[in-house]
Design a binder for these strands. Sequence first.
DNA 1: AGAGTTAGTAGACGCTTGTTTACTTGTCAA
DNA 2: TTGACAAGTAAACAAGCGTCTACTAACTCT
Lengths: 182, 182
Amino acid sequence: MTRDREATSRRILEAARDLFAAHGYDQVTMRMIAAEAGANVALVNRYFGTKAALFAEALATGSTIESVIAGDPAGLAARLAHRLAVRLQSGATEPVTRMVDRAGTSPEIQAILRAHVEATVVKRIAAQLDGPQPEQRALLAATMILGTGSVRRLFGPGVIEEVDAHQVEERLREMFEICLRP
Amino acid sequence: MTRDREATSRRILEAARDLFAAHGYDQVTMRMIAAEAGANVALVNRYFGTKAALFAEALATGSTIESVIAGDPAGLAARLAHRLAVRLQSGATEPVTRMVDRAGTSPEIQAILRAHVEATVVKRIAAQLDGPQPEQRALLAATMILGTGSVRRLFGPGVIEEVDAHQVEERLREMFEICLRP
DNA sequence: AGAGTTAGTAGACGCTTGTTTACTTGTCAA
DNA sequence: TTGACAAGTAAACAAGCGTCTACTAACTCT
């Protein structure tokens, strides 16, 4: 057994991210995380403090939605629509997105989540928009993004047939155009 | 103390509905429900079996979304948009809707929830639609409905200023038109 | 009026949770 | 080589959970 604090805490963080994404905050126990990381339970608390703090750190590990939002504002609606269509069709989404979908209902977790969504989605989309009240329109876009997550969580991936995926994507794109336009 | 089984079990069911709506499935305990209803904890189990069964029954108590969906198909998008705009603006929504928003992440509860959303929202909207693949379009509408719930849960009611409410409503209506049209 | 049924109660059971404490063991500098 | 510090471990802690059992008391029917 090599004793490497950095490697161990990284394994713990990755295990937490994957498990939170797969099962949701409430369903994952500290012991599950420790087992998945091949570490002792006490280390999880030692390195990350509390379960909620660990959740917050796991949430902060690289999300790629930012790269979808960044880029030419003119193509923003199309990029978001594509992302959501893929999300509805296949199960292959990034862990952080699934974490948001499946996060728990406790006030503490809600606050962590709200801060994350506000900073990485709403603010960034709003920054791309011209015209009055960009935050309000960004919030409508967030409605669709979060709604896709809910539908996926409830009905599972593959709820949309592969054949119709591009049709759905086109519809989503038009909806995004409407909620983002000045 | 009057001994009235029917009245007591109704108080329990109402207490469960209100508490689940306010705090979410995981955050509500059987003891909280019993206290709110002014009944003994053992009665909750005796009358409803398990916590999950109680949740399912509470979910089944009258939802008014059905009345919003029912009616002239031509005005469906407008009615849904109005409902969602009100939901984003004020905190006054029906308990059942908030229950769906705040439900937990356990597989059992997810299944209960999925069945409810499918039966009361997706199927009913789909039944109003002409053209091919009505379920797919109804699912997109469900995306917006559930997304509104997520945004409201995260950012709280009143996230949309009263002044802009009708503007948001108009935008939502157009989005519904797009996802519902053949 | 008394027996039987049933609503309501108190308390405990068994289990799981997040977290902490006291201890052991490996690693590296002096 | 040895001593100190840090990484890792085992076990327990206290609290909370859903659920169940044994009991009390009120209402109903004959």
